[in-house]
Computed example of a mutant assay.
Amino acid sequence: MASVTFEQVTKRFDDFVAVNNLNLEIEDGEFLVFVGPSGCGKTTSLRLLAGLESITAGQICIGDRPVNHLSPKDRDIAMVFQSYALYPHMSVYENMAFSLQLQGIKKGEIRKRVQGAAAQLGIEKLLHRKPKELSGGQRQRVAVGRAIVRKPAVFLMDEPLSNLDAKLRVQARKEISKLHQDLNTTFVYVTHDQVEAMTMGDRIAVMKDGILQQVDSPSNLYNHPSNMFVAGFIGSPAMNFFEVEQAISNGKPSLKLAENLISIPDYLPQFMVDGGVTFKDRPLTLGIRPEDIYHPQYLPADIVTIAIKATVNLLEMMGNELIVYLETANQIEFVARFDPRATVKQGEALNVLWDVNRLYLFDREMETVLM
């Protein structure tokens, strides 16, 4: 087992900066997930750690050992690729044993490790088969098993579930999370799927345009995003954003959203009310998550709300929830997640209720969170 440290790591491809000054410490035994949209630098960061790409600037350490100039085979890592990268002419046993043979490990020890990993993954009966005879889920297990037998200090996984169907992805997520608990080894995992990130990671590193935006626990990323990008990326459906203006309601500072006034004196940042940067000096964006918008029939107790009148444009019944797309008379569109028992019809006008204690306020230009 080992920790992983990125120290001011930068990777350039000619004039393109794929990873920009990445500083990140991954603890020994931690499950760290890199997440972000395509081209954000998450896979490049993993490849830099694996030694599959050279670093332009900075340093990567595994444990206390700098590994910049070490080849992949000398870094004590094992990687599971998106394509699984199994040798088609070899059996499952041979695929899992191959790296151990290259290390000169004795046949008895190789057999013990391969059979142990196969039993752990439930693929003992597949050891004689070739990859073409396996399903996608079975190939994924073989690729993971090939990594397990090496007993590396760090496991690296690059979107290993993206080729699986929805049901298998859920099952494989559980299996990989259990595997991490059993092995108690450092896992570094890359995905574009924020559901995978939220359900699997001890911490999540959110990236955009090669820059680390925030690294935190799933709960803190969801409840305390540091900027608009993180707030909009974490959560599905995504957070609703609205341009708002300063207003005064009954002598108190408020936010004006079309014809609606939202009073927020208890949550207004102090610097915005006494001197310095004033409320009206900055363009503001208001955010609220779909799950914090309620149908009047199913409002939880003790929630302070504001009513917003809107028309239902579209409904998506998901079984355990009802996703509702709404639009106000001023053509402001937003999404709500209702209790599935709510009686809602397309074209219906509703006074939906927003939880004012769950509002977010952002500086529109800087995209930083203010509230």
Rank of each mutant, 00 (worst) to 15 (best):
I176C: 06
N240S: 13
D165T: 04
L370E: 12
L134Y: 02
V80I: 14
V114I: 09
G235R: 06
N184V: 00
T278V: 05
A2Y: 05
E321H: 09
T305I: 07
S54E: 04
L100I: 13
V352R: 00
I262N: 05
P283W: 01
E53R: 01
K107P: 10
S219I: 12
A2F: 02
E25W: 09
S254W: 02
S99V: 07
M79R: 05
M90K: 15
A85F: 04
V230W: 01
A57E: 15
P237V: 10
I55G: 00
E243Q: 10
G136P: 03
R139L: 04
F233L: 09
H295C: 13
L314M: 06
V9K: 06
L100W: 07
P88Q: 00
G122K: 04
Q297E: 08
F81Q: 00
V369D: 07
Q181M: 09
T305S: 04
K151R: 15
V206K: 08
G51D: 13
V324K: 12
G136W: 12
D355E: 11
V312C: 15
G347M: 12
V324S: 07
G251C: 02
N21H: 11
D292Y: 10
A172W: 02
P269W: 04
F16G: 02
L156H: 04
A349C: 03
I105N: 03
Q59I: 05
N260K: 09
L268H: 01
